[in-house]
């Protein structure tokens, strides 16, 4: 039963891929829409936390995102309230055996870099928009994704946290491929 469902699902996925040509931005969107990124690239006045949900029958993985437990807020510069900063708990590295995640300059991305709920096209445009992305051209964007400590943390999140799809090096290769192709954006 489960095997049949899996096979049907895989077939369906294959058919979908065939029906819809893959876009060079797709894998990048997959990464950016992972909770490791989204939890701090919010449109809200607060960061979120997430819980992994695995469907007991299909095995499908989804993430339930919810407001950060301690009523943490974004604050003026994304580093939390002056009275309870992100750094009150989050260190420059994961601590307590990775149960408390940490990386240098742990903070929320500015509201202009909110990615929640965007479709791939919107996400792509937002990413490239220098008015929104901190004035980064494509080269600077690649450098940021390649070197920024907080971005890199997404692949070493500690504890039992999932990492985004694709190894970090592969993600950078895919990003460079997309840039080399002229950084096209999908329409949806």
């Amino acid at each position: 039963m489960i095997r049949t469902a899996l096979v049907t699902g895989l077939l369906g996925a294959a058919l979908n891929v065939a029906a819809q040509a893959p876009h060079s931005f797709d894998p990048i969107a997959e990464v950016l829409q992972h909770p490791r990124c989204l939890n701090c690239h919010t449109f809200t006045e607060y960061p979120t936390q997430s819980r992994k949900m695995v469907d007991p029958i299909s095995g499908e993985v989804s993430y339930l995102r919810f407001r950060h437990a301690q009523q943490v807020i974004r604050g003026e510069k994304g580093f939390g309230a002056p009275t309870l900063q992100c750094g009150a708990c989050h260190q420059d590295e994961n601590v307590a055996d990775g149960k408390v995640p940490g990386a240098p300059h742990w903070h929320l991305a500015p509201l202009s870099m909110g990615w929640e709920g965007l479709n791939r096209g919107e996400l792509c445009e937002t990413l490239k928009d220098t008015d929104k992305n901190g004035g980064r051209d494509l080269a600077a964007l690649v450098k940021h994704m390649e070197e920024d400590a907080l971005v890199l943390w997404g692949w070493t999140p500690g504890g039992d946290r999932d990492t985004p799809p694709y190894a970090h090096a592969d993600f950078i290769d895919l990003l460079k491929l997309w840039v080399a192709a002229g950084a096209p954006c999908p329409t949806n």
């Binding site: 009275t83 900063q85 750094g87 009150a88 708990c89 260190q91 590295e93 601590v95 307590a96 149960k99």
Partner: peptide, 26 residues
Amino acid sequence: GRALCGACTVHVDGQPTRACVTPVKA
């Protein structure tokens, strides 16, 4: 021991900080 309860709160340069997860090197 996991910055969840705040009982260990101290000030570091005036900022409330959870001492239970702050490595001394920090």
